[in-house]
């Protein structure tokens, strides 16, 4: 019974599909791929597009992916889908935004503090908490 191939479609945020298929058609970066059982092992990138899973019953299921990776082993196809649209400039914009936010975080930094100093303050707060705890226990008794 090697007339089916196991197909997993996952993204970083959720498992999208998992089950047997008689054929899987994916938008590969260098052209669409139709994957039948016992396909040679292959690793490639995916373009944004539609993944078609043909179930053994003949029904078809469609999933839209915005790019990702594809791995084929003789009996398993794994589609690692991206959750977001990925493009160089989009990533760049996101990176810029993160940097700006960091600058904002630093901007209203009142006065720099040494690590040692912060450590001392934290230790102090911890000691206070411990003391409170002890005090509370005494009260109970």
């Amino acid at each position: 019974m090697a007339s089916t191939i196991h197909c997993d479609i996952v993204s970083a945020e959720a498992e999208i599909f998992s089950g047997e298929a008689s054929m899987v058609i994916v938008p590969g970066e260098e052209g669409d791929l139709g994957i039948a059982p016992r396909h040679a092992p292959l690793l490639t990138r995916l373009r944004p597009g539609q993944v078609r899973v043909i179930l053994p019953s003949g029904e078809e299921e469609f999933y839209f992916i915005s790019g990702g990776m594809l791995e084929i082993q003789p009996h398993v196809v794994s589609v690692l889908s991206d959750t977001a649209q990925r493009a160089g400039d989009l990533d760049e914009a996101a990176a810029l935004k993160a940097k700006e936010e960091a600058e904002r975080a630093i901007a209203d930094r009142s006065a720099g503090m040494e690590v040692a100093q912060a450590q001392a303050q934290l230790a102090q707060a911890m000691a206070q908490l411990a003391a409170l705890e002890r005090f509370r226990k005494q009260l109970k008794r």
Partner: peptide
């Protein structure tokens, strides 16, 4: 916390909410 420290902050993300997204 790190605002008060003398440590470089190269990037920051906040307000991820209940359903953080990879994006």
């Amino acid at each position: 916390f790190f605002r008060r420290l003398k440590v470089n902050i190269s990037a920051s993300t906040q307000d991820l909410g209940e359903r953080p997204r990879l994006e």
